[in-house]
Nucleic acid binder design. Structure first.
Lengths: 186, 186
DNA sequence: ATCTTATATATAAATCTTTATATATGTAAA
DNA sequence: TTTACATATATAAAGATTTATATATAAGAT
């Protein structure tokens, strides 16, 4: 799937692998992320498959940049993927819930400590999303042809905000219930 | 991580790979899932690593069952993992959001169709979680020593319920905004 | 009668993702 | 002055996950 994240960004403008990582982890970070190593290897695969072309820009004093550009094939493949409806709900995979499910043996206080740590993490995460000075709005203001795109970018950010609000509410509720109903160590 | 899902379940009682799949996809399905092929290969690895032992039960008329039992090493490793606090928020990975982010080229109606399909899927999913006759409660009633575990199982189910409520609210809001603000094809 | 689902295990191949390593320089902060 | 961070690319190895394939029988539904 990283394939389509890369094609999607390169459909806006040519970029290097390094720049792609910044874009991905800044703008789609709350629902899609990738390591540089995966980005570089995927770019290479996409170029071999004819979805991208690249050229090297010589630089002085630092490594040369390899700038990737989407090809017509790449654009068609991206559009085909976008038009294909997702027929299932995205699966959730949560290490925290897995741990909580089996956590009884470690006892009440250890469980509460871990949940409070998560409460802190998700509270911060939520605040970050709230404050995020709508970067999309700014970009759209400079490039008016991206106004409609910005509407969609905002919708994804809104998901991040609602997700964190829900997560914090669940953590608070769960902590309260465990404090009340989980028997004390004795 | 599947490792710990398997150790966690086998810590309750010995089971076969086939039974483990049923347990995993029935009770942790909304936050952890796995294919049979992965379960079988992981069980083999865990036995080689000394975390599990197994013995074959001969059956008539159908394939023999290989029943896995957790070892002391396995139990220690499980407890060590459980006690280790998760220092990060679980990352989200959503194909739907990735698609929505780049969806502008497919146009208003195609986007709305896809979002409405997801609204249907998540509405059903949410209803399923709501109706789910607390299986954990029943098991705990039969095995009173599992009462405390059932409290934790319920907390994870509650997450699933709240997640789907949030998801449906986000989809409704997003559909409304796109209907209102996304320019019509012309 | 035929099809589907459930029971049961296992491997091969492919794909996806993370972690570690190597190289090289500029700038800003402590 | 040393440390951290940003710029920039790339590969090896390991780990995680999915898809496809093979085999075999029983029970229940259409």
């Amino acid at each position: 799937m990283l394939k389509y994240a890369l094609l999607g960004f390169l459909n806006y403008q040519p970029m290097t692998g390094y720049e792609l990582e910044n874009f991905i982890n800044a703008s789609t970070g709350y629902f899609w992320h990738a390591k540089l190593s995966q980005i570089y290897t995927t770019l290479k695969q996409l170029e071999q498959g004819g979805y991208l072309s690249s050229k090297v820009e010589i630089q002085e004093g630092r490594p040369d940049r390899r700038v990737y550009t989407i090809t017509e094939t790449g654009r068609e493949d991206l559009h085909h993927w976008l038009a294909q409806p997702l027929l299932e709900a995205d699966p959730v995979k949560s290490t925290l819930l897995l741990k909580l499910f089996f956590a009884r043996p470690i006892g009440k206080q250890a469980i509460l400590t871990q949940l409070r740590l998560q409460l802190d993490l998700h509270t911060r995460q939520g605040e970050e999303y709230q404050q995020m000075p709508s970067e999309g709005q700014r970009i759209a203001h400079e490039n008016p042809q991206l106004t409609v795109d910005a509407l969609l970018w905002e919708a994804t950010l809104r998901f991040g905000q609602m997700y964190e609000v829900m997560y914090v509410a669940w953590l608070e509720e769960t902590i309260t219930r465990i404090e009340r109903d989980f028997p004390d160590e004795s």
